[in-house]
Design a protein around this nucleic acid. Structure first.
Lengths: 238, 238
DNA sequence: CGTCTGGTTGATCTAGATCAACAGGAGTGG
DNA sequence: CCACTCCTGTTGATCTAGATCAACCAGACG
């Protein structure tokens, strides 16, 4: 974790339109500007640990963070991936509980911190912000349900393709040949944990996708040779 | 579905202490009394269907209801079991969306219906009710996450034992010999769908549990011969 | 140069899905 | 009352996705 912590200007944040604060009134943004702190984190750093008290919210400006849960026997599962614009920690804050997951940096990230005091103040005086978080919680629940169903019903292959397509929707690029590609933000083993598999199975599945000319991989670069065929194979339920 | 629909008196509801309305001020309860409708439902009836518009909330007075999701290919999964005291439909109501699941009666039930108009009115004038639903949503999310992890990490056997223990915690009884038992509220195939397995596997797993003298089954009666050993086997994470 | 970490391959093993048959009720209707 | 079907649950036989264990390779890095 880098030592330098800097003040962050939320009002002019280039990714504010992606965040939970996109519609916040100017007045409140100004207030947040006085308290938001930005910091650079490196791979493996933790924003908070499972079981920690919640001191505030984290807003991801760039990079990728994984929410990871350890069970009694020490095994861990990646529950979800959070990227630019996502706010972490709202559940423990609103639920007056401890963090139920560990937020681990999976790719070097810039993250802003907003103390719970300022959030509480805003929540008390501006119920619309509370409403915003209720909606956020409802969609998180919806997504979690979808993930649950995928975990129960889909094969490793389908899960992997689904993961790739989600990334493609958010961060897909076009190379000079007009071929769609993405740069995988996380390591193979993290992909495995995310889709509920093992590094070995992910590796084999990748190989199979290559021989079928669906996706080509070069390290963390994944190029989609036949996007249509992929979409055909998975119903693309989000 | 029975034809008779009766007015329901929420104020004096014997299971109100189990519900989301347990702390509702008297004034609001009186208001709800004027609108709540109670009805008897039979196995297979539906409270609402996946994709339906949400017209109001359902509060289960007795019986059991399953939230079931159908995927594109028609396969269904039981997402969760709702019992006495549970309120269904709040997600679609608060999220201004359609129902994402079908609520199907798994065991003859008495269910009260409260129209969205009256709920909206209460929500507008009493933010504490909104807060209550936010908390409800947070715990539902927490539970869904736990279910997700179980689906990913546990064997059929562990899932089944976990299901039995949850029922035992809520509805466990003692017979004349001091032996703990429960009456399974739902059919084998529904148990299978709930824990992400098949009727065949559930049947085999039950048999194994019997030969190991952990649980004895007689139809829908399940007696725990050795509760301690069961708790040892599963970490009992809720 | 060794050491480490992440990724790929190979060989093996198993939980559990799938397919198929059948047994006991519970109705239903002649 | 029997014959019929329908439905749930149980058992048996088989098959496969994917976990596990083990070896190895290639960069990164002190």
């Amino acid at each position: 974790m880098s030592d330098e912590t800097a003040r962050h200007n939320c009002t002019d944040c280039p990714i504010r339109h992606l965040t939970d604060w996109q519609n916040l009134p100017k007045k409140l943004l100004k207030k947040m500007d006085r308290y938001a702190l930005r910091r650079q984190y490196e791979l493996g750093d933790k924003l908070y640990h499972q079981g920690d008290k919640c001191h505030g919210l984290f807003c991801i400006r760039s990079g990728f963070v994984g929410l990871r849960r350890y069970d009694v026997s020490g095994r861990s599962s990646l529950i979800k991936l959070a990227g630019p614009g996502d706010t972490l920690g709202y559940r423990a804050l609103l639920g007056h509980s401890t963090h139920s997951n560990t937020a681990e940096i999976l790719k070097a990230s810039e993250v802003c911190y907003i103390d719970r005091a300022i959030i509480s103040e805003i929540l008390q005086n501006h119920p619309s912000v509370g409403e915003r978080f209720l909606q956020r919680c409802l969609t998180d629940l919806e997504r979690m349900e979808a993930a649950y169903l995928r975990a129960k019903n889909l094969t490793t292959r389908e899960q992997l393709l689904h993961f790739l397509m989600i990334l493609h929707e958010q961060f897909g690029q076009l190379d000079e040949n007009g071929c769609h590609y993405i740069v995988l933000p996380i390591a193979r083993k993290d992909i495995a944990e995310l889709i509920g598999s093992t590094p070995e199975s992910v590796s084999r599945t990748i190989k199979k996708l290559e021989t079928e000319h669906l996706v080509q991989f070069e390290g963390r670069l994944a190029s989609f040779e036949n996007l249509g065929a992929i979409i055909d194979q998975i119903g693309m339920i989000h």
